[in-house]
């Protein structure tokens, strides 16, 4: 049961960490200064949430475990993030649309996690929900701007949406571990979030004059540790320094 909780907390922490790492790569490359700063800020919030969750995971693991150990010394198969978040950043539209699809999910997810029977997860959710709400506003506004922008931005945003859609199913697919966590009142029933997510996404896409893709075959496996080729590259860059110099200090 404690192992269940450890893996559950790591799944949430890995989502936050991998997305934070991906978004950090935009620092210095944003299309305009303000948006470069915006993405860096969102990345920082994600890393902050990852820290809270990994500190908790390290405590649950006990012994010598540390938050840094969790982040830097686990390999691809021990990572449990959603596949959507490890995909390459692509162009600005790809990054914005991915952010919108995930932020909207994350908003509903953390809203529910506020009710968790686990006190620590509850307080992490109280902290995270404020930041996640802000991210969701930002990415929805950008989806509207791109979709209802120029002909080119519209076409690109629609293509990003079509390309990313098959990676969204995993957010709402419950596995055994999640079912056990829900039964204990600790975890969130993500399957039950799907309608709310669909409605909100449809509302924003409508404003953005974008077509909501049909649900079809969906990619899955990230939560269970089966990843795309991309995650290895993310980890190689992120983990290089502490693996080369394990005692390195700031």
């Amino acid at each position: 049961m404690e192992n269940d909780k450890l893996e559950y907390v790591l799944r949430l922490g890995d989502n936050a960490l991998i997305l934070g790492q991906r978004l950090s790569a935009w620092c210095g490359y944003g299309p305009v200064l303000e948006q470069d700063i915006a993405l860096s800020n969102i990345a920082l919030d994600q890393l902050g949430q990852a820290r809270m969750l990994m500190q908790y995971a390290a405590e649950l693991k006990g012994g010598e475990a540390t938050e840094d150990g969790m982040a830097f010394f686990r390999d691809v198969f021990d990572y449990h993030n959603l596949l959507l978040l490890e995909l390459e950043n692509g162009h600005w539209g790809d990054t914005v649309v991915r952010q919108f699809l995930f932020d909207t999910f994350n908003y509903f997810f953390y809203t529910e996690l506020l009710q968790s029977a686990d006190e620590r997860l509850q307080s992490i959710a109280q902290k995270a929900i404020k930041e996640v709400t802000y991210h969701a506003q930002w990415s929805a506004e950008w989806v509207i701007r791109l979709g209802d922008g120029t002909e080119e931005s519209h076409q690109k945003a629609q293509k990003s949406l079509n390309d990313l859609w098959e990676w969204t199913g995993e957010m709402f697919t419950m596995d055994e571990l999640e079912r056990r966590m829900v039964e204990q009142g600790i975890g969130v029933d993500v399957a039950a979030l799907k309608t709310r997510w669909d409605d909100k996404v449809a509302e924003i896409l409508d404003l953005a004059t974008l077509q909501k893709p049909e649900d079809d075959w969906m990619q899955s496996g990230g939560k269970q540790g089966e990843h795309t080729e991309y995650l290895g590259y993310v980890l190689a860059e992120m983990q290089h320094l502490p693996r080369m110099y394990p005692d390195a200090q700031w």
């Binding site: 303000e34 915006a38 860096s40 920082l44 930002w138």
Partner: peptide, 13 residues
């Protein structure tokens, strides 16, 4: 509002 995000996490521009 110029940007929802500013020079630090706690500010907007």
């Amino acid at each position: 509002m110029v940007s929802q995000f500013g020079s630090t996490a706690c500010k907007s521009l």
